[in-house]
Design a protein around this nucleic acid. Structure first.
Lengths: 204, 204
DNA sequence: CCGCGATGTGGCACGCAGTGTCAAGATCGG
DNA sequence: CCGATCTTGACACTGCGTGCCACATCGCGG
């Protein structure tokens, strides 16, 4: 238990498991996008993936998980982009630039990105969980990178400045995403993100 | 349908409904705090409130709703405090000061506040929904107040600056809440909030 | 070659959330 | 007092998530 093999593969068995999981996610998302989240039953997903209902729950702890599983890689992308920014750059600017990676990804596969966003938006139960996980994943991944670049904290007690920065930026992203969804597919994500983040912290 | 009576009461019938709803919420929260959220069944809550399982769902759309119902009044408190700030004050400062209302409320009933926080924290499904609702309620209520105090937007397109400000501040609150929960009941909420919000937007 | 344990899978049954439906009871207006 | 309306409780049903068990597959040593 607890292999530890992180990146591509390790156990022969492990790879098969990954493949099955990916297949379930693929066929599941397809059904969700076509029929909606709630109307699609686990039974259907399992059948479409060629497994039993019971086995579905051995790969995903819940139906939600199929949708939510995309987040970790997205967080990794942002963290990577963040680490690549110069260390002496203003952290807020670094955050803004790191988000360009998301923008690029969204532009690359516009249908998928917009479909996912629409799906999240019209499924109350998912929207909150997604936002929460996003926060957790991004704060956990990006805050350490930011923390190194901050001047030492004056007083005693815990230092939550980096987390606050990331959370605030994430709040801006969420608002921009909402605005884009409301404004249709022709909204300029990057420009709105500039507006939002500049409003919060006017760069001196 | 759609009475429209907003504030205290109106229909004779309406008051009874409010009372029953409040009673369900009270007994429900008591059970949640004692047994935890998931182990407590709707059946138990209904029995403790002296109604049938079916009637429970006539007052609350879901079990989650019992916990989540506290948010609207909290949002109202903040909005009120925000509106009371001078119009020429920096919006970020106004936001910070408005949050003092929450701090005061949390201090007043420390057990309830901390219990609720702990409950949310250890129930994955609730945490996300709570945060999402909080965002929605507070942005919806507070952003219009902020928007009036902002200088007119230069370019064309939608103005999301006020929403971004509120969302960013809310991100700070969330981080501080997490830190307080992690640090135990002796953490200084107000001081940490100062630190977080100052890190995001150093007041010039 | 044959057991033998370990792991993965499907089937079954269960508990619980949430919804539709319907019959009975309370309430209010006439 | 009586009918219209609203509320309530009871039953049934779908669907998610889980525990349990029997069966199949695979790698190992006897």
């Amino acid at each position: 238990m607890g292999q530890g093999t992180a990146a591509p593969a390790g156990g022969l068995r492990e790879r098969a498991r990954r493949a099955i999981r990916a297949e379930i996610a693929r066929v599941g998302m397809e059904l969700f996008l076509r029929k909606g989240f709630e109307p699609t039953t686990v039974e259907e997903i399992a059948a479409a993936a060629g497994i039993s209902r019971r086995s579905f729950f051995r790969y995903f702890g819940s139906k939600d998980e199929v949708v939510l599983a995309h987040l970790d890689e997205l967080a990794a992308t942002v963290t990577e982009a963040l680490a690549a920014r110069p260390a002496d750059e203003d952290p807020w600017v670094s955050l803004r630039r790191a988000f360009d990676a998301i923008v690029a990804e969204a532009e690359a596969d516009r249908a998928a990105g917009f479909g996912l966003a629409r799906l999240l938006n019209e499924t109350e139960a998912l929207r909150g969980q997604y936002a929460e996980r996003q926060k957790r994943a991004w704060v956990g991944a990006a805050a350490p990178v930011i923390a190194e670049r901050l001047p030492p904290l004056a007083g005693p007690g815990p230092d939550i400045r980096a987390e606050a920065l990331v959370a605030a930026a994430l709040g801006c992203v969420a608002i921009v995403a909402d605005a884009c969804l409301a404004g249709g597919p022709d909204a300029d994500f990057a420009a709105l993100l500039d507006q939002a983040m500049a409003a919060v912290r006017p760069l001196g």
